[in-house]
Design a protein around this nucleic acid. Sequence first.
DNA 1: GTAAATGCAAAGAATTTGCTAGCCC
DNA 2: GGGCTAGCAAATTCTTTGCATTTAC
Lengths: 136, 136
Amino acid sequence: MKPKGFVRRTKQREAILQVLRGTTSHPTADWVYQEVRKEMPHVSLGTIYRNLRTLSEHGEIRELAYGSHHSRFDANADSHYHFICDSCGCVEDLDMPIMQELEEKVEKLGDYQVVTHRLEFHGICPSCSDETSDQH
Amino acid sequence: MKPKGFVRRTKQREAILQVLRGTTSHPTADWVYQEVRKEMPHVSLGTIYRNLRTLSEHGEIRELAYGSHHSRFDANADSHYHFICDSCGCVEDLDMPIMQELEEKVEKLGDYQVVTHRLEFHGICPSCSDETSDQH
DNA sequence: GTAAATGCAAAGAATTTGCTAGCCC
DNA sequence: GGGCTAGCAAATTCTTTGCATTTAC
């Protein structure tokens, strides 16, 4: 039997994958749209978005963004690392020293001038762990 | 003489700061808006956004998000770290090993169940460094 | 044949901006 | 009083969704 949510190979989906695999530039959805449209002028932006979501849900590509698309603000302007809960979406500060040496490491990798870095951990926060043994 | 872009202390701005300082929950702009509105029913969402931007530009608060608010996609689904250029906005993969041990460190800090982590470096990329000695 | 995917357009959510009036210094 | 700000609403930007039609398997 076919698994639920079986993914078909459509030419649109193949074209999107090919575009993504043909670049190392981490493009935006719109850039992918423009590229795919060169071969397939009638493709719609909705299709691009739907496929990008499907592909990342299936682990074929990776989306570089927050789950939610809005900013959060923090009155503690000092640099610190965060933990973001996949279950409730909360953001907590971590009591963990800033590893400045990581920036030097990156500067040695190439001609990068590193100004700052950001480290986030994702998973299940303490209060969500408490409430249920099986997460939804 | 007053510096250009001098920041006034308005009661709206004070209220926003007070709301942010009164929570550790890293609220969204809309949450701040709802809170400020309790005291100041006529405040507008535009004012909230303008002030959050001003405050973070002046280093009084911190915005937890990308500069741009759209996603980028990557066909390389393996985990890796990124460098994001403040000048041209490009995103590059870094050839740097994943530090899995960081997740264990966080799990020891509390009852966190860490699923994944993300590390990004921000600064000036090699090609922007080349083009100009003084960045715009 | 049927469920899944497409195209198109309209709706949504988050954020920004233009403009006039008002308030801070 | 001059310029930074507020309020308000309209505009932008990015993304999602509804629906009839088409397509993959």
